[in-house]
């Protein structure tokens, strides 16, 4: 494998890790809120969070361009990440966000809410209940959600291309390199990259599935 493949692999890994970390806290909070709230807004928020799953990635990328561009609200506020690796992280995080929210919501829903009430009845604050009861009991499900989000970010293409471009050594991920190789007729290297990404995707899904099963067994 040549240097371009290793470079794309390293950038993909960095972007996927960054995207997973970026969406971990907000997606966990939103997942918890969705699992516990009785608000009338629950359905609307749940649907909005799932939108990146069904919208074409190019549409999401276009919306991100509108937000992050020089005329966009975030661009004007000095958040300049277009055509950078940070932009790739942002695009991947947005695409991974729905999967992490879904997984987190399922993980929290599997934690018996009465255990939280019992913690409060024993004098614990809500923050202490969340830290010492809810999060530990949901941890495997949360980890599975983050692993799935990592996998989604690893394979992200459309939104990343629009926001971060395809700059070798800077924003060129494996997905983008496969696309470029096919465009330029470098089928052998494209096949190698496809094999590599398939192995990674299998490992991620297998790991996430094992975590989810163990979480379900614990919750029973």
């Amino acid at each position: 494998m040549d240097a371009a493949v290793w470079s794309a692999f390293a950038i993909s890994a960095q972007v996927a890790v960054g995207a997973t970390l970026a969406c971990a806290v907000p997606a966990t909070l939103v997942g918890y809120w969705l699992a516990r709230t009785r608000s009338a807004w629950r359905g609307v928020v749940d649907t909005c969070c799932a939108l990146p799953l069904v919208l074409p990635p190019t549409a999401v990328g276009f919306l991100l361009l509108a937000l992050l561009g020089v005329d966009g609200p975030l661009g004007r506020a000095g958040f300049d990440v277009l055509l950078t690796r940070g932009g790739a992280v942002v695009a991947s995080a947005v695409m991974a966000f729905p999967l992490v929210v879904r997984g987190a919501k399922n993980a929290f829903e599997s934690v018996e809410p009465r255990l939280e009430r019992m913690g409060e009845s024993l004098g614990m604050s809500r923050a202490l209940v969340a830290r010492s009861i809810t999060l530990p009991l949901a941890r495997r499900g949360l980890l599975a959600a983050l692993v799935l989000g990592f996998g989604r970010a690893l394979g992200e293409f459309g939104a990343t291309l629009l926001v971060a471009g395809n700059l070798p050594g800077e924003t060129q991920t494996m997905a983008l390199l496969i696309w470029e190789d096919i465009q330029l007729g470098r089928d052998d290297r494209a096949l190698t990259l496809v094999g590599l990404t398939a192995v990674l995707a299998f490992a991620v899904l297998f790991f996430a599935d094992r975590l989810t099963r163990r979480h379900a067994e614990e919750a029973r």
Binding site: G119, L122, G123, S132, L137
Partner: peptide, 29 residues
């Protein structure tokens, strides 16, 4: 209130001693 429901509702990820000390974390008894 000290509440004992029908199913006990013990914290499943803790030992018996940690369950017994749960209130100490909250109220500092």
């Amino acid at each position: 209130v000290g509440y004992v429901p029908q199913d006990g509702l013990l914290f499943p990820h803790w030992t018996v001693e940690r369950n017994l000390r749960a209130a100490a974390r909250g109220r500092g008894v």
